[in-house]
Design a protein around this nucleic acid. Structure first.
Lengths: 219, 219
DNA sequence: TAAATTATCAGTAAATCCCCGATGTCCTAT
DNA sequence: ATAGGACATCGGGGATTTACTGATAATTTA
């Protein structure tokens, strides 16, 4: 007797729903028992008791993270595969911590998505190679706990530089503001990039602005 | 004698390709004669001579506009429906001006997409109600206290550079992405700074990221 | 058709990036 | 108390980017 897994798909893009639904129904051991745009996702979890939920993170209506949490608290053993258009490095960790079991980007091939589903159904966590590596790297410098915002890793000076960078200042301007050598600011920027896993100054700029905005420090 | 329209689908998200393909093949008078991720779109236009192309305006490769232009120049009577996840108010106008015949957002229902396809096949332009209204207002020079977004002043190329800058790319990387000289990208950045009244590269970076975030192009 | 805009590139000096290393201080754990 | 580790502060040097001032050809607009 082969178990048939019940699946529901939650995505506010109708066409993506169609694509995923098609994929699922072609699998013999999967039963697509629900499709939704996110508005009644929790109700559907209650009603159909699915084994796994494929969840689009780009839901406009509701916050995807909240959805993960609500579904998990309503059926703690539910498996959630997040299917997102956003870069995994930014969102995957938060998703997994909130209770998801996997994260794939929309640009992936269908095979990858099915592979992710199957791995999750085995009780494992699915992440891309890149992501795995990232987490391993992170696990190495095993910091105690509760360190979800890596900006917290920055020292005081580093954070000041990060802050001023997000405010749109250049290296010279920051050096003047803090009464330090330009070289010192450069070193701080290097350290920040390493701590935040950023590859270039451009990425640092983008990250800093995003961080400042998300923390309502600038608008 | 019912004409059968040849359709090709271009999208770098495999699942979206599947969804669209499914929709098309269910229509009796449409023949899906090609699916691609964008890399060989122009070649396919030459090979299959489709009546209409459904094109995903993707951010990653950022060659959507170029693709519209190349396909148009290679087969001037080709019809192009842009299918995008981004807000129409930002991109639709540029797409239409570049040669597209319609613009629908990915969040639309499949019926809307099919309606758009049929309207375009009749030789008309498809835009959402909201968009139509917006254009009417604009055409009438009725400018309410609507704040003028100076990003509108940017030319196509300048906008691409602005866009990639907000995505965290450096000058070199942008040059490689757009297959242009580094010097050219520098000039574009200068022009952008003048048009947007920005005093430094740092300010441009910050502005670009903020603009992208406030328009939900990045998260 | 004339004028304006756009798209493309170059030269140069200054600034910044990015990878190295250095010194001294303070804090923590063995 | 001593060794290790962050932290704050600087420098060298080559590669890149910035911030200017150009230029030319194509395209759009008036």
């Amino acid at each position: 007797m082969n178990k048939v897994y019940k699946v529901i798909v939650i995505d506010d893009h109708a066409v993506v729903r169609e694509g995923l639904s098609g994929m699922i129904t072609q699998e013999k051991d999967m039963l697509l028992c629900g499709v939704d745009d996110g508005t009644s996702a929790v109700r559907m979890v209650n009603e159909f008791m699915p084994d796994i939920v494929i969840l689009d993170l780009s839901l406009k209506s509701m916050n995807g993270m909240d959805l993960i949490a609500s579904m998990k608290s309503c059926k703690p053993d539910i498996l959630i595969l997040v299917f997102s258009m956003h870069d995994e490095l930014i969102f995957a960790e938060r998703c997994i911590k909130t209770g998801a079991s996997g994260y794939v980007m929309k640009s992936e091939e269908p095979e990858v998505i099915l592979r992710a589903i199957r791995k999750i159904l085995e009780g494992k966590i699915y992440l891309s190679e890149k992501m795995m590596e990232f987490f391993l790297h992170k696990a190495m410098n095993f910091k105690p706990q509760e360190e979800q915002d890596s900006v917290e890793l920055l020292s005081e000076r580093e954070f000041q530089v990060f802050h001023l960078t997000g405010s749109g200042m250049g290296t010279r301007q920051i050096a003047d503001t803090l009464n330090l050598s330009v070289k010192t600011i450069e070193t701080f920027k290097d350290n920040i990039k390493h701590k935040l896993n950023l590859k270039s100054a451009s990425e640092l700029n983008q990250y800093a602005v995003k961080w400042m905005l998300s923390h309502n420090i600038i608008s």
